[in-house]
Deep mutational scan, measured.
Amino acid sequence: DLSALRVEEVQNVINAMQKILECPICLELIKEPVSTKCDHIFCKFCMLKLLNQKKGPSQCPLCKNDITKRSLQESTRFSQLVEELLKIICAFQLDTGLEYANSYNFAKKENNSPEHLKDEVSIIQSMGYRNRAKRLLQSEPENPSLQETSLSVQLSNLGTVRTLRTKQRIQPQRTSVYIELGSDSSEDTVNKATYCSVGDQELLQITPQGTRDEISLDSAKKAACEFSETDVTNTEHHQPSNNDLNTTEKRAAERHPEKYQGSSVSNLHVEPCGTNTHASSLQHENSSLLLTKDRMNVEKAEF
């Protein structure tokens, strides 16, 4: 173990290094160091905050020279020094078990990766560091076993998940096959086929009936047209017969005018059967003409 005197000496050296690497504005270890034209180094955030307070150039807090945003430059070497100082402080805390008085939040800088452990060898070769390295080497064999167990647990979990997924996939297939086998029997399929065939026959029977009705309507229309044509021909046949009657009536009127007047009046009210309204109107006109002729003949006879 380190003596108290040596611990104090190391602590004083760390404090001196820390004062050199402090920012003059925030009085902390410089984060993202930036250098000016006057070779003074500050935190990048502190300098941008200072420049944004005034429009135009501002003055350096140490030498009062003008500073602009374009004049600022990043210093990589200074950032490396800060990183190495942080590593020294971490090693000091691990070796002594004491917390550094002016320690900052170094938890963000710590890294437990194997590459980081290899890099620590180049920091300080001390008894405390050696003991700590031995402890780490002793704890390393235990870690692979834990990793193997965790991997086995994960693989077993994956296997159970896969088996569950396969079961879920197989179950719908089985149910679907069961439904297909038990849903419709052979008799049901035959009945469905016969039902479809009967429906098709009914459709075939319905369509000819409609065509037959249309044919019957067409035949009825044709018969009505033929009947009207026969009526017209009958009226045409009746007209010459009426003319013959008129000639006979004229002759009778010349011989017996008194008797014919009474008979002509009675004939006005008689309509021949089986004739249309057109034929009756023609008869009325003929009878009126005959009456006028008879009157003329009677007057001539009187004179």
Rank of each mutant, 00 (worst) to 15 (best):
S3G: 08
S3L: 06
R6F: 03
V7W: 03
N12I: 00
K19W: 01
C23T: 00
I25S: 01
C26M: 00
L27Q: 02
I30L: 09
E32S: 07
E32K: 02
P33C: 13
V34E: 01
S35D: 01
C38T: 00
C38L: 00
C38S: 00
D39H: 08
F42V: 02
F42C: 00
C43R: 00
K44A: 03
C46S: 00
K49D: 03
K49G: 02
N52G: 07
K55F: 03
G56F: 03
P57D: 06
Q59P: 14
L62D: 02
K64C: 02
K64V: 01
D66R: 03
K69S: 10
F78C: 13
S79A: 05
L81Q: 05
L81I: 13
L85F: 15
K87Y: 02
L94M: 06
F106E: 01
A107T: 11
K108F: 13
V121S: 06
I123N: 13
Q125T: 10
A133D: 09
A133L: 08
L137C: 08
S139W: 12
E140V: 08
E140I: 06
P141C: 08
E142P: 12
E142M: 11
S145T: 04
S145E: 12
L151E: 15
L151Q: 11
V153A: 08
G159V: 04
T160M: 06
T163Y: 04
T163I: 04
T166E: 02
T166D: 12
Q171S: 08
S176F: 00
S186E: 10
D188L: 02
K192G: 05
S197I: 10
V198S: 08
V198A: 08
D200R: 05
L203C: 01
L203W: 06
P208H: 12
I215F: 12
S216Y: 11
D218Q: 02
D218K: 09
D218C: 04
T233F: 11
T233Y: 15
N234F: 05
N243V: 05
L245I: 11
L245S: 13
A252K: 02
E254I: 12
H256G: 05
P257H: 03
E258K: 12
E258A: 14
K259E: 11
Q261P: 07
G262E: 13
G262V: 05
G262R: 10
V265Y: 08
N267Y: 08
V270F: 12
P272R: 08
A279S: 11
H284R: 07
H284G: 14
L290V: 11
D294Y: 06
